[in-house]
């Protein structure tokens, strides 16, 4: 197998040049999908027979909960790449993705609480799904503060990468909590092996929102990584050249 692409993408210069157009595309597509998904989900999708209109928060809650876990997965994979191949960009990814992951997890928790009040009759209950998601939020916060509390950058990178690997055990717990234990939270509506237990006209806008959320993450993380790369490489010739071309210098 040819690994040159992998090493090329590990180069900050290559990464910065190749992602320039990509960022705009991600941002543009994410905007379209989120607008279409929101309007469709809130105004045109049918209401649920039992929950009525309050089920519509599904269109924010579910994509944010899925994305919050995917971000952590991506951070853990990136942490392995950073630890094993000593790839700086991988460490930068972990560090810039963590605050996004924390915000999205918070969004999932808050929308879940807002949804819980009218349907369950309570904002919060200490069941396995809700508690493990709250722990996920604290893990994100822990990773952010761990990075910030260590002065030496390389040590900070290594420590956060190890924290990601430790934190990854929480992901299967969140995922399977509704199957392993008795919880107030219902089990998954979407399973890999079965058809979704939801009508298509209800889940299609949800899927659009989910793709929109993923693109938002891709957009946000690239913007943050690019500015981090610029900051870090500010003394190199290629950054100077780039800034001159942009008439910033």
């Amino acid at each position: 197998m040819n690994w040159t692409w992998f090493h090329k993408w590990g180069s900050p210069k290559w990464f910065f040049q190749k992602t320039e157009a990509l960022v705009l595309w991600f941002g543009f597509l994410c905007l379209i999908l989120l607008v279409v998904g929101t309007v469709w989900g809130l105004a045109f999708a049918p209401e649920d027979i039992k929950q009525g209109n309050s089920f519509r928060i599904f269109y924010i809650h579910v994509p944010s909960a899925i994305l919050a876990q995917s971000i952590f997965m991506a951070m853990a994979i990136s942490a392995v790449v950073g630890l094993v191949w000593r790839m700086k960009l991988a460490h930068i990814f972990v560090q810039v993705a963590a605050p996004i992951g924390a915000s999205i997890t918070l969004l999932a928790l808050v929308t879940g609480a807002i949804w819980g009040k009218p349907t369950w009759g309570t904002w919060w209950v200490w069941d396995a799904r809700l508690t493990s998601t709250l722990i996920q939020f604290f893990i994100y916060l822990g990773i952010i503060s761990l990075y910030q509390s260590i002065e030496n950058r390389d040590t900070a990178y290594k420590a956060t990468a190890i924290a990601c690997l430790v934190g990854i055990v929480n992901l299967p717990i969140i995922k399977f909590s509704v199957n392993w234990w008795k919880t107030l939270h219902q089990p998954a509506t979407f399973k890999l092996t079965e058809a979704p237990s939801m009508a298509a006209e209800m889940w299609v806008p949800g899927l659009i929102m989910l793709v929109g959320f993923y693109l938002f993450f891709a957009f946000a993380v690239l913007v943050r990584m690019r500015s981090e790369v610029l900051e870090r490489e500010k003394r190199t010739a290629w950054v100077r050249e780039y800034l001159e071309k942009k008439n910033v210098l």
Partner: peptide, 12 residues
Amino acid sequence: VLAKHDENYMPP
């Protein structure tokens, strides 16, 4: 008393 809702959604 809390209501538990299931994973099934259905338009009326």
